[in-house]
Nucleic acid binder design. Structure first.
Ligand SMILES: Nc1ccn([C@H]2C[C@H](O)[C@@H](COP(=O)(O)OP(=O)(O)OP(=O)(O)O)O2)c(=O)n1
Ligand SMILES: [Mg+2]
Ligand SMILES: [Mg+2]
Length: 990
DNA sequence: ATCCTCCCCTAC
DNA sequence: TAAGGTAGGGGAGGAT
């Protein structure tokens, strides 16, 4: 292949600026073989100017390197320890800890404690130096069993033996274990919660609860021996507590003081009698009051589900990383973007882009402290259950040789590779490495485009360093030295090819694809390898007999655009040729902020959803506030179990779902959790779902505005200016389509025409329970061809157009009847029952036909109320359009009637006489005018008060109405000033 | 043409 | 047991 791909950072043959070390160059290794540590070090030391103490002599083998490294780390530790004040007693004197894997507090914090209180901290395990191992999980297949549990297998050495002098150990060749850094014999894997359980329930081991109360609660931890009687349950509780204790994910709180919540088990070497304070976790302690709960992971059982879930979600971690980066590297990026590289100053320079990506990021970060795992297949996962459905987050390259990939179930991974070692997540460490990674990138380049926590583009077109390959290897070396994790780099003329080059370079390599080789490189490349082509596009292309980029090039741009749409077609055409016009640039402002949960979501009743929705709204509100944004458009997304979907394959997963969404746009941006909750509740109602079917819920906010404090006063102005602005868009107008059900000339009962109009969704879904609506009859003296409703489709149900003689039919009942039955009913009704008939007469007539109509009983109240409360607008109408409309929309409706001068109803007469134009026209008195204003204001207040409880959208409609009126008069501006306090409550405006 | 809503797709 | 999120791009179809 014509691609220049150099696998080792040191193998670059170009002259080196910084260091012409005398070391012989390291031979490149084949992609399949993992580099050895010695080699990694050797290539590292090549150009390192910092690690001067080691530069002179590369280490012949791993152990001498480790010895030296440990010595150096200890020197650093001692230096720090002696420089830090010793005002505190050395309570950790004699204690030397090794932190294994993810812990709370983090290993760095524990290091701090040790430093401060006279203890020692070991970066690498040594049974000679380490007195305490601190870990969340005991490794699986530790070749030692705890004393009390050893009965079942007398041949297995006891855990105590692990620390005991070699002579007392009842196992041969134990030294082999320690030769491998005393790491676990990894026959299977290293992450077993139940092993931890066993360990904790055992009294040969002491547990330390690092309570770390913040400032307030004092108690110095108490030391006891663990209760011999303590059973598995209590230790299990402890383990649960460990999980739920911290409020935020630790990668979010690492900057907070070192007083922190969270407990941690410390596995103590029993022979050591350190002056260390321990607290027993026993049944008698408060912990047991929690009781054993075996279902901490569904929305039904855990009131803190959202919080706990996000704390443990890897996808949440990588999904939210971008916003944390925005904050941390706020000012680190140079000026805007890169259009500068096409300006005249530097001439028509070919752009150069470097793409850097950490190798198997999550695995590398955990494995760097377990070097003996380096060449073993390792994956990061929550669970090691060989039948489990936990997902693999990242797999190292040896594991990938077995087919283990990110995203597959752990059971499949174990089937592919039974020896796969599973290591737990360490989000804090990922965060830290990502920071170091970006610090290095920003140091070497001022045009950095962050892609993710382990990946970025650099525009090095104008870089001082003229050799991009050398720059890339310098950066990679520095990344490895700083983080202990390797990165790969791709170098080419644009983002697309640079990214492809990185893939070719992995692992731990770099690859330059010069512009003239792009064509050739892409020709055989499968289309799926192009970023932007995923599963669906790949399948669609497969149908067109396209598998490689070369084949994709055979299709004309026009055909691609026809098939996939304009932009997607362009993308396919360009990418298959290695063309990419995107520029390296800083991340733009966010356009939306949201949170969703599609795992463990189970509800039985409506009330089960309340707490969950509130948590979600709070979460979103906090994120908005955290970014300094407020939003106007709110979208609720629901995953609803598909009709015949089987149980999800994944434990607590969402399975096969329909995705539904609804949105509302409000006039005033908000970040207030309460307001968002009201909006969300309303949106939630739109779906009108059986909550048992819900498998996922999300809330997204868009139309973001800056939440500057100075905007608060502005808000009112905005609203007011919105109200007064002349460029009003008409309110949501609903063109009504009609479906003829019966034909006729309108005079004969036999020929009655009933038209069902505008039915996009079943009525049920339009009117979720509790939504306030009123039946409306819109009357006219001639038969309308269509009815315009100034009401959004979500605020009214089907419209029935009928002769006024039928106007008493209860539409809600009516529309549930089968069509033939409706026809029958209508045929049997007397014709032309005039609305000017008394309600009694109407009722009588109605009752007379009731049995034939086969309706349920209709009470006097029902019919009476229908006459008196509904807006009975016509005098002698012949045609009635009937439908239900949510209350506030009635105002809107009336407005229309008013402007069309078709209404003589009571409310509209108030409106009429209330409008100043009208006052002039009607020449009403000042008193009448004031009274009308009062009435109108009352009315609006009522609506608004009502809606504050339930219906945000309706308020918005009020505003649209107001706005439209305000075009005609200033009356509603006055009203606006009066009702503004209500709006403050509603929209959280200041 | 340009916007909006309700989706789907993609990447990490 | 297990933690299937997040945000941007874009298309279809309808309203303006
Ligand atoms: N489906 C996925 C994809 C990624 N990640 C996480 C774990 C990865 O370590 C990290 C970075 O993603 P990459 O695509 O860069 O994958 P790796 O860094 O693991 O491997 P590679 O060497 O291919 O970059 O994001 C994840 O949890 N789930
Ligand atoms: Mg990576
Ligand atoms: Mg990556």
């Amino acid at each position: 292949m014509s691609v220049n791909s150099s696998r080792s950072t040191g193998s670059d043959s170009r002259s080196r600026k910084r260091n012409s070390n005398s070391l012989s160059s390291i031979p490149s290794k084949s992609k399949k073989n993992q580099k050895t540590l010695g080699m990694a070090w050797g290539s590292n030391s090549l150009s390192s100017s910092r690690s001067s103490s080691f530069r002179s002599s590369p280490f012949s083998d791993f152990s001498s390197y480790m010895t030296e490294k440990n010595r150096k780390l200890q020197c650093q530790f001692n230096a720090e320890a002696s420089s830090s004040s010793h005002s505190e007693k050395g309570i950790f004197r004699g204690v030397s800890i090794f932190v294994d894997g993810f812990t709370i507090p983090s290993s760095q914090e524990l290091r701090g404690y040790m430093l401060k209180h006279g203890g020692r901290f070991e970066n690498y395990f040594s049974r000679h130096r380490v007195t305490h191992i601190i870990c969340s999980n005991l490794p699986d297949r530790v070749p030692y069993k705890l004393d009390q549990l050893a009965n079942d297998n007398p041949n297995q050495p006891k855990l105590l033996d692990f620390f005991a002098p070699r002579s007392t150990r009842g196992i041969k060749d134990v030294s082999a274990h320690f030769a491998r850094e005393a790491k676990i014999e990894c026959e299977r894997s290293t992450c077993y919660d139940d092993q931890l359980k066993e360990a904790w329930s055992n009294d040969g081991v002491e547990l330390i609860k690092v309570t770390g109360q913040c400032a307030g609660k004092s108690d110095v931890p108490v030391h006891e021996n663990i209760d011999r009687e303590s059973n598995e349950e209590s230790s299990f509780i402890a383990s649960e507590l460990c999980q739920v204790r911290t409020a935020k994910p630790d990668y979010l709180v690492r900057e907070e003081s070192n007083c922190r919540k969270g407990i941690q088990a410390i596995l103590q070497k029993p022979s050591t009698s350190a002056g260390i304070s321990l607290q027993t976790i026993s049944e008698s302690s408060t912990l047991s009051s929690l009781g054993p709960s075996n279902q901490q992971h569904s929305t039904l059982t855990d009131p803190n589900f959202v919080e706990n879930y996000f704390k443990n979600s890897r996808l949440h971690f990588i999904g939210t990383w971008r916003n944390r980066y925005r904050k941390r590297f706020h000012s680190c990026n140079g000026l805007k973007s890169t259009s500068s590289n096409i300006d005249a100053s530097s001439g028509p320079q070919t752009p150069t882009v470097i793409h850097v990506d950490m190798d198997c990021f999550f695995v590398s970060v955990v494995v760097r402290n377990h070097l003996e795992l380096q060449d073993k297949p390792v994956a990061v996962c929550h669970s090691d259950n060989p039948r489990g459905t936990a997902e693999i987050s990242s797999a190292n390259y040896p594991a990938r040789d077995y087919g283990v990939r990110a995203g597959i179930f752990v059971r499949d991974a174990k089937a592919l590779c039974p020896h796969l070692v599973i290591v737990p997540y360490n989000f804090e460490a990922y965060e830290e490495v990502a920071d170091q990674f970006y610090n290095i990138l920003h140091k070497h380049c001022d045009k950095v485009q962050a892609v993710s926590c382990d990946e970025a583009f650099l525009d090095v077109t104008d870089s001082k360093e003229k050799d991009p390959e050398l720059l890339a290897s310098t950066i990679r070396k520095e990344i490895f030295e700083t983080t202990g994790c390797s990165a790969s780099a791709g170098i080419s003329v644009n983002l697309l090819v640079a990214r492809l080059a990185t893939r070719a370079a992995k692992p731990d390599g770099q690859c330059y694809i010069p512009v003239e080789k792009v064509d050739n490189y892409l020709h055989e490349l499968p289309v799926k390898a192009l970023p932007g082509i995923g599963y669906v596009l790949e399948e669609k292309l497969k149908m067109l007999q396209v598998k490689t980029c070369g084949q994709l090039r055979m299709i004309s741009k026009e055909s691609l655009q026809d098939e996939f749409g304009k932009k997607t077609g362009d993308m396919l055409w360009n990418f298959s040729r290695g063309i990419d016009h995107r520029l390296v640039g800083v991340i733009q402002e966010s356009k939306s902020i949201g949170a969703e949960v599609n795992w463990g979501v189970r509800f039985n009743e409506m009330k089960d959803t309340q707490c969950f929705l509130i948590s979600l709204c709070k979460e979103v509100s906090l994120r908005l506030q955290g970014c300094g944004f407020q939003g106007r458009t709110f979208t609720v997304k629901i995953k609803k179990r598909k009709k015949d979907a089987a149980e999800p394959a994944k434990y607590m997963g969402c399975g096969d779902c329909e995705n539904l969404s609804h949105s509302i746009t409000v006039p005033c941006a908000t970040d207030d959790a309460d307001v968002i909750h009201r909006i969300t509740r309303q949106l939630f109602g739109y779906f009108h779902l059986d909550v048992k079917e819900i498998r996922g819920v999300g809330l997204q906010v868009s139309k973001l505005e800056n939440a500057d404090p100075c905007n608060q006063g502005h808000e009112r102005k905005l609203l007011r200016s919105w109200l007064t602005s002349g460029s009003a868009r008409a309110g949501e107008k609903c063109q009504v389509s009609s479906t003829e059900m019966l034909k006729g000339d309108g005079d004969n009962v036999e020929d009655i025409v009933i038209e069902e109009m505008e039915v996009h969704l079943p009525v049920q879904s339009r009117f979720p329970e509790g939504k306030q609506s009123t039946e409306i009859q819109m009357v006219s003296t001639s038969r309308p061809q269509s009815v315009d409703l100034d009401v959004p489709t979500s605020s009214h149900n089907s419209v029935y157009l009928m002769p006024s003689s039928l106007s008493q039919v209860d539409t809600d009942v009516f529309q549930q009847l089968p069509e033939e039955l409706r026809v029958d009913i209508l045929k049997q009704l007397p014709d032309h029952r005039r609305p000017e008939c008394s309600s009694d007469a109407v009722l009588e007539d109605y009752k007379a036909h009731q049995s034939e109509m086969k309706f349920g009983e209709v009470s006097t109240n029902s019919v009476g109320s229908s006459v008196t409360n509904n807006l009975w607008l016509g005098k002698t109408p012949q045609w009635v359009a009937k439908f239900r409309v949510s209350n506030c929309s009635i105002l809107n409706f009336l407005a229309k009637m008013y402007f069309q001068s078709k209404s003589t109803g009571l409310l509209s007469s108030i409106l009429q006489s209330s409008i100043s134009d009208a006052r002039l026209v009607l020449d009403i008195s000042k008193e009448e005018w004031d009274e009308a204003i009062c009435k109108m204001t009352e009315l609006l207040k009522q609506f608004i008060d009502l809606k504050i409880q339930t219906d945000i959208e309706e308020i918005y409609l009020c505003f649209r109405l107001l706005k439209r009126f305000s075009l005609k008069s200033n009356f509603f501006l006055q009203v606006y000033d009066i009702v503004f306090p209500h709006l403050q409550v509603l929209f959280g405006a200041k």
